[in-house]
Structure formats: structure tokens, C-alpha cells
Write a protein that binds this DNA or RNA. Structure first.
Lengths: 232, 232
DNA sequence: GTATGATTCAAACACACGTTTGAATTGAGC
DNA sequence: GCTCAATTCAAACGTGTGTTTGAATCATAC
């Protein structure tokens, strides 16, 4: 039962289901997207999803897996390239940030092959409550985060590691919202005519680097008066 | 049917349901939280929620309404105070940002009366797919965003309004993730021992102001080379 | 052409969902 | 003590969920 494709090259039903699921997950969320919505949108039978993937959770995992693995592979490749070019010299923090977030933004700018759709989904999923999804994401990110945080630690030896960690967290939030929140929540009513992903890249990069370079906060209570140490 | 409380002062069942719902929504999300989970957690009968609120959507709306209205009232009061003190002088952008985000961070630092729980929920909800929730949030935020963005436009007359809009968007993302993502996604494995909300405030503020002040990006394609104009 | 494995299909499974019902219980005002 | 409205309760409503079944169809190899 649930034999799985043994040696056939590319049955297209499987991919149609993945594409349909990806789009519907973005639009309605995981829980609110039913298997019947997915299969009918993909023009497949309801039983097809269990035949090809087993369970709904496994389908979710596969929706992420096929894109996230590749994204993180590219991120690591970009970091490898940087470190190879540097030949032992310390890396510029801005280049590290570009390798991580720029790679993601390039995927988000791809509106033709579903990259944009996926990045919207990914952005929302960082705060997804579903335990299964969380666990999967953590595993998928473990190596990448270790490598990039390590690179930043080396590039900024004078900045406390905890500060770097927090700022990386802040940066991920800014990027995720920039991508996921633009067209989903119309809080900023009618104002994002210029949601062109091509233009998002330089805008966001400038903001991220500004935040990374901000003076380190002192732990005075109340209003923040930034110190004069520069973080980056 | 569904008479609603007409003139009684404070039946406690209603509040127990709201508190239980708030906590469960944070933990599992809206869709994955059932009425039975809520009422059993609140020690109430399953029918109580429909008696007091009518529908699940109305309950969700009330969970947000009771806290978000107050938060935004405080934000506007803080801006009023700033503008009164300035007596016509232009406001410092950093003060405007503090009025908006600092007020929210203070609520997030309140772990005793559920403020922290609520802010985690709020952060995730900015990207919530549910159409009903989105519409409600947009209405609830309309006035506050108009006032604060207007204040920033006046404080930064030389910066294109679209840039200010984007940076505000980025800032909201950084804050939301900082609050919502800390304990939900353990991407940064085991590293956030120091998740003390009191310390989050100065850290995040420094980052946000750094991003706001970052040089404006030029729209060169490819890697970002920030211009030399300062945004704030 | 027939055998074999992969895939599709209509139908049903048991279960959980949000909501409703109508009777019981409570509590204050007279 | 009685009245009457507010509230609680057990039970059921109809519907949609993820998943499973077993037969039908398809495609390939011999």
C-alpha cells in the first residue's frame, strides 16, 4: 500500500499537487486548506495525495523540502564562494548578510516559477504554530544558521555573540514581513503600488545593513540612548 | 437567541473564555484551536462561547479587540504627548518610532496580565491568511498608521514617502518576529536563554533606528551599494 | 495479446468541527 | 415564595475533515 513511485521518471500528477498545495497554503494557511481543495485545484482525485505522499503532513513537508533544500544549498554555496575569495582574510559582514538574504530575495523575485509564492509561504512559516512544521524547519535550517552565524561571529569578534544572534533574528523578521506581508495584509492601505520585488532587494538590504551597523544598545531602562560602539 | 449580556457587570465565564482562547490561539493558531479546546480549558460548557460571543469569528474579534484597541489608544496618546511637547517644532523620527514600537514592547514585557501572550499572537496575525481577521486588523490599524506615517512624513520631508512606508513595514516585521518568533520557532537552537523582554526593548530599538537611518538605496541592479543620503 | 506493476477512481470510513436546541439551574427584585 | 430573565448544561444537528478501500484503468515489457 502507498507504493510510491519506484522507478518512473516524472509523473506529473505529483507536481501538480505540490504546486496547487503551495498556492493554497499561501492563500489560506495549512489548516484551512483541505485535501479536497488541493486535489480538485490540481485536477486530481482525492486519494492521489495519499497515494503519492501518504499524509497531509508529509505533503506539507514535501512542499517545503523541494524548494527550501535548494535555497539553503545556494546560500551555503554563496558563503563558500565568499570565503574562498577572501583567502583567510576576515569577511565583510555586509557580504555575509547579502549571501544569506540576497539569495532569498532573488528567489522571492522569481514570479514565474513559483519562487515568489514559496517565499511568501516560507516567511509566514517561521512563526507557524504547527509542531510538525516547526520541527522540520528547524532541522532544515540547522546547518545554514550555524555556518552563517559562525561567519558573522568571526567577522565581528568584538560584538557579543548574543547581540549578533538577536540582530540576525531581527533581520529575518524584516525580510519575512517584507515578502509575506505585502499583499496579504493590506494594513498600509493602497500604498504598495510599487511592490516590485526587483526594487525590494536594494531597499531591504539597505535597511538590514543599517540595523546591523546600529550602535549597540546600553541596558539603561526606559528610552534607548544608543551607545557609540558600532556593531558592524 | 444569543441574548448577550444586557446589563450585568462582569460575568467571569466570558473573561475565562477570552483568556483561554488567547493562550490557545498563540499555541496552535486560529484554525487548529477548536471551540471544545477553548471551553474545556476555560472550564465552561461548549455552548457558552456561542452564548457569549455568537460565533468563533466573533470570539476571535473580541480577543483582539479588548487589547488592540487599548494598545492603539496608548500609541496615539504617546504621539499626542510628543506633538504637544514639540509645540510646532518638527519631531525627531526616533521619538516617533519609540512612541509606536516602544508602547508595543512595553505591552510585550508584561508577562503577568497576558500582554506578552497577546503580543505574540498579534505578531503572527499580521500575516494571517484568514480574511475575516485581516479585515478586522486593517480597520483597527487604519487611524494609528495614518497618524504615525503622517508624523514621519513631516519629520522627514526630504525622504520619499514610499521609502518611509517600506521602512516602517520592515520595522514592524522585525518587531513582530522578535516577539512572536522567539519561543515558537527554535531555529536559533538553544541560544535565546536571554529572552528577557526587558532587555529586548533597547536591543530592538537600536536595530530599528539603525535601519531607519540607513542610507537610501540606489536602484542599481545587483548588489546594494548604499548611497550617501541618510534617511533619518 | 497477455501479464505486471503503477496509477486513478468512486465510494465509504470514523471522527471532529462549529453551531443549535430546549430543558435545567441560578440569582436578583418584589 | 414567586417571577422572570440570565446563564449553564447535556445532547444532538448537519457538515467537512483526513484517510482508506478495492476495483478499474493505464502503460510498459515480453
Amino acid at each position: 500500500m502507498t507504493p510510491g513511485p519506484s522507478r518512473s521518471p516524472a509523473p506529473e500528477t505529483r507536481d501538480r499537487i505540490l504546486d496547487a498545495a503551495e498556492g493554497l497554503f499561501v492563500e489560506h494557511g495549512f489548516e484551512a486548506t483541505s485535501m479536497r481543495m488541493i486535489t480538485s485545484s490540481a485536477g486530481a482525485n482525492i486519494a492521489a495525495v495519499n497515494y503519492h505522499f501518504g499524509t497531509k503532513d508529509a505533503l506539507i513537508q514535501e512542499v517545503f523540502g523541494r524548494r527550501l533544500t535548494e535555497l539553503n544549498r545556494q546560500r551555503l554555496a554563496a558563503l563558500d564562494r565568499l570565503q574562498a575569495e577572501a583567502k583567510g582574510e576576515p569577511l565583510k559582514p555586509s557580504r555575509i548578510v547579502e549571501a544569506f538574504f540576497g539569495t532569498a530575495l532573488e528567489l522571492a523575485a522569481d514570479t514565474e516559477h513559483g519562487g515568489h509564492t514559496f517565499m511568501r509561504l516560507l516567511g509566514r512559516t517561521y512563526t507557524e504554530p504547527n509542531a510538525f512544521v516547526r520541527k522540520f524547519m528547524a532541522e532544515e535550517y540547522a546547518e545554514v544558521l550555524e555556518r552563517f552565524l559562525g561567519a558573522l561571529y568571526s567577522a565581528l569578534p568584538d560584538v557579543p555573540r548574543e547581540e549578533i544572534l538577536w540582530r540576525f533574528h531581527f533581520m529575518m523578521g524584516a525580510m519575512s514581513y517584507a515578502i509575506a506581508g505585502t499583499d496579504s495584509l493590506q494594513l498600509f492601505a493602497g500604498s504598495f503600488d510599487d511592490a516590485d520585488p526587483q526594487r525590494l532587494m536594494p531597499r531591504l538590504m539597505s535597511f538590514l545593513l543599517g540595523g546591523l551597523r546600529a550602535p549597540l544598545a546600553e541596558f539603561a531602562q526606559g528610552a534607548v540612548q544608543g551607545g557609540d560602539r558600532e556593531a558592524a
